[in-house]
Structures are given as C-alpha cells and as structure tokens.
C-alpha cells in the first residue's frame, strides 16, 4: 500500500511539473473556416480523428467534430461553410499551464479534447486529449524510474559486490596554494566523481559546495594541501589538510563575516568571511583543528540521505 501511495503522490507531482505543451500533440491537422464541410470527409477518414480545430490565419476560431459532419451529411448540407457549422467559444488551454489545469478542465467540462493556444499570441499550437495526458505522465514516470534505477544500481553495485567488514572508496586530490586559476579543480572533480557513483544530486551538491569552500581557503591562505574523500555506504567524509599557517582563533574564524583574507582574495569574489560558515551550513558534521605554524585539519561529513532520517 505504501508503494501505491508513493506512486500516487509522484503522479500528482508530475501533473504540476509537466506543462500542457510537454504532452500535447503538436502536429495538428487544421481546417480553414471558409472551406465547405465536405472537405472534412478526407481529413476525418484519413487521420481517423474525431474533431478538427478551425484556424483562420493561425488564430483558433472553433472546433468541428465528426458529429457536426454527420449532421450535415444527414441534412444534405455538405456545401455549408465550416464556419457556419463549427462550435465556437470553445474552452482552450494555454501551452504553459501545468498539466493539472488540463486534468481539472477535463473533469469539469467532460470534453474529449482541448485546443492548446500560446499565451503570447493566442495562436493554436496543439491539441490535448485525455490519452495524451496519460501517455505523457507514464513516459515521465518511466524516465524518472530509469534514472533512479540506474543511480541505485551504480552505487549499490560497488558496495554490494565487495565482501569486506568495512568498505570505503577513497579519492585524493592535491591543491596548489595561491594558484587561483586551478582553485576548484579538486572539488569539481570530486563532484563529478560522486555524481557518477550515483549519489543523489542534493547530496553531491552539499558535498561539492563544502569541499569547494575548503579548497578556496587552502588556495587563499596556504602553500597547498590535500583533499581526501572517503565514500562509505552511509556517508561521505572529506578531509582537507594543509601545512600552515594555521588559524589563530577558530572561534573567530567561524563567525560569519569575520575574515583575514587579503585584498586580492576579496577582489576575486571570496574572503568575505562566509567560507567556514557555509561549510557548516552544508555539512552534516564539521570538525576543525588547527595549530599556528603547523597547519589545519578540516573534516566534513555529509550523510547519505537514506541514512539521514535515522539520526
């Protein structure tokens, strides 16, 4: 049952996420209002459709259905102009409306289809039926499912297939001091690696942002350092070490806005005293040890989401 509930919520989410234009049929057969009804014979037959939008110079003016056509046939009025027999004042949908609006309109009016027009110039851009909605949602669900499957496969693959009491993957990066052109290479490299391992984007983002801030600190303040990331089944641990100059007062360094950064760092868009507070914000746990003249040791832990709730 739980699974059922989750699927329902997911579908509801999708009807907000998807837009009408994402699922509608785009290449719509249209007719002009000045054509005789007789002209519909081929259109309805060949395309096996039950209704055709009537369009005058791209502007949507009405809808003519197979019922309208049959009425004309019965009355022997096949030479009447489409504009005299079509239904006007048809309800339409805008292309950029969320799909949920379409769902509501289908329920409210009981029509089989809605013409879709663009909000900007009111031109007809497509047509949407109930089956378009179902197909669109299913397709999206399938893609989401595949993405998730793939992600789960790639991460679990490594941890499940290895037999050991403890498993962790280790990635090591060397950071050059004072070289701003290379700053960020370690954290963006780690980010890509974590993503390829199949970790969730949110986790990857948090790990990447905190590592990046730490890397910038190493570049700005030291002659270089090492970043080591350990990916374990339940967490990512990132250890950043350097050989000096060390932080004289950690309490101050943790205060938002406190900075000892030189002007060149500030002009590059950093050094506003937000680095360490940012790391704290994005990490689940942060440990900072430092000795003046010796160096700094920073440990960042980001827990993997499925283990996070249990704490």
């Amino acid at each position: 049952m739980d699974n059922n509930k989750r699927t329902t919520t997911k579908i509801q989410e999708l009807t907000y996420e998807l837009k009408v234009k994402d699922v509608m049929t785009k290449d719509v057969e249209t007719v002009s209002p000045k054509m005789p009804v007789n002209f519909l014979r081929d259109v309805l037959q060949n395309k096996r459709i039950s209704g055709v939008p009537v369009v005058n110079d791209n502007e949507f003016v009405g809808l003519i259905s197979i019922e309208d056509f049959i009425k004309c046939l019965e009355q022997g009025k096949m030479d009447d102009l489409i504009e005299d027999r079509m239904t006007k004042n048809i309800k339409t949908l805008y292309a950029d409306e969320p799909l949920v609006h379409a769902v509501v309109k289908f329920e409210k009016f009981g029509f089989g289809r809605f013409p879709v027009i663009s909000r900007k110039d009111k031109k007809l851009v497509g047509i949407i039926t109930k089956s378009d909605i179902i197909k669109g949602v299913l397709k999206k669900l399938e893609t989401a499912y595949h993405d998730e499957e793939e992600r789960r496969y790639r991460a679990s693959h490594i941890f499940n297939d290895i037999i050991a009491d403890e498993v962790f993957l280790k990635f090591q990066y060397y950071v050059e001091g004072k070289n701003f052109d290379k700053a960020g290479e370690a954290s963006t490299g780690l980010k890509k690696t974590l993503y390829r391992l199949g970790l969730s984007p949110e986790i990857v983002r948090r790990a990447a942002i905190s590592t990046y801030e730490a890397e910038i600190n190493v570049v700005a303040f030291t002659d270089g350092g090492i970043i080591v990331a350990y990916v374990e089944p339940h967490q990512i641990k990132i250890v950043i070490t350097d050989k000096g100059p060390g932080i004289p007062n950690i309490e101050n360094a943790m205060k938002p806005g406190f900075s000892t950064a030189p002007e060149w760092v500030r002009e590059l868009g950093f050094g506003a005293g937000m680095g360490l507070p940012n790391i704290k914000k994005f990490a689940d746990k942060m440990t900072l040890r430092s000795k003046v003249g010796k160096g700094t040791h920073l440990e960042i832990i980001v827990k993997l989401s499925n283990y996070r709730d249990e704490d």
Partner: peptide, 22 residues
C-alpha cells in the same frame, strides 16, 4: 539549483561556483 546568476565578477571561480551549486 537551476537558477541564473548575474554578476560583475569575472573569473573562472564564477563558473566553478555555478558548477558546484548546480
């Protein structure tokens, strides 16, 4: 994530920042 950043700062750290912050 998914936003646009407008800035008058111009160096590769702007791109790295955009990258890590999605």
């Amino acid at each position: 994530p998914g936003s646009i950043l407008l800035t008058s700062l111009m160096n590769i750290q702007v791109i790295n920042t955009a990258n890590v912050a999605d």
